[in-house]
Simulated scan of single mutants.
Amino acid sequence: MVYGLTIGQAAAFAGVTVKTVRHYHRLGLVDEPERDSSGYRRYGSSDLLRIVQVRTLAGGGVPLAEIGDLLAADPERFSSALDDVERRLTERIEELIARRAVLHRLAAGDRLLLPERACAALDRLAELGFGARYVAIQQEALILARALVPEVFDSFLMQIERQLGDPEYVELLRRCQEAESWDPDDRRLDELAAALSAKLLANRELLSMPAEFRARPDAATRYGLINHHREHQAPAGARLNELLEANLRAAGVDIPHQ
Rank of each mutant, 00 (worst) to 15 (best):
Arg222Ser: 12
Ala108Met: 07
Ala72Asp: 12
Glu34Ser: 05
Pro150Thr: 00
Thr20Val: 05
Gly28Met: 09
Leu49Thr: 12
Val54Ala: 00
Glu86His: 09
Glu242Gly: 13
Val152Pro: 08
Glu151Trp: 12
Asp154Trp: 01
Arg41Met: 09
Arg111His: 03
Gln53Met: 05
Arg88Lys: 06
Glu231Phe: 13
Arg216Lys: 02
Gly252Glu: 06
Val62Trp: 10
Ser79Val: 12
Arg222Ile: 11
Val30Tyr: 09
Ser181Arg: 08
Ser208Ala: 14
Arg146Met: 03
Asn203Val: 07
His23Glu: 10
Leu192Ile: 07
Ala73Trp: 03
Glu91His: 15
Glu95Asp: 13
Leu96Ser: 11
Ala14His: 12
Gln163Lys: 12
Gly109Ser: 09
Val253Gln: 07
Met1Lys: 11
Gln53Ile: 10
Leu196Tyr: 02
Arg50Thr: 09
Val62Arg: 08
Asn227Met: 15
Glu91Ala: 15
Thr90Arg: 12
Gly28Trp: 07
Pro235Asp: 05
Leu172Asn: 00
Pro184Asp: 07
Glu161His: 07
Cys176Phe: 02
Pro210Met: 02
Gly237Lys: 04
Ile7Leu: 06
Ser38Val: 11
Glu171His: 08
Ile67Pro: 05
Leu164Pro: 04
Val152Lys: 12
Asp36Gly: 09
Ala72Ser: 13
Leu164Cys: 06
Ala219Leu: 04
Asp186Ser: 10
Pro150Ser: 04
Gln9Asn: 05
Ser45Thr: 14
Leu71Ala: 04
His228Phe: 15
Leu57Val: 01
Ala11His: 04
Asp83Gln: 14
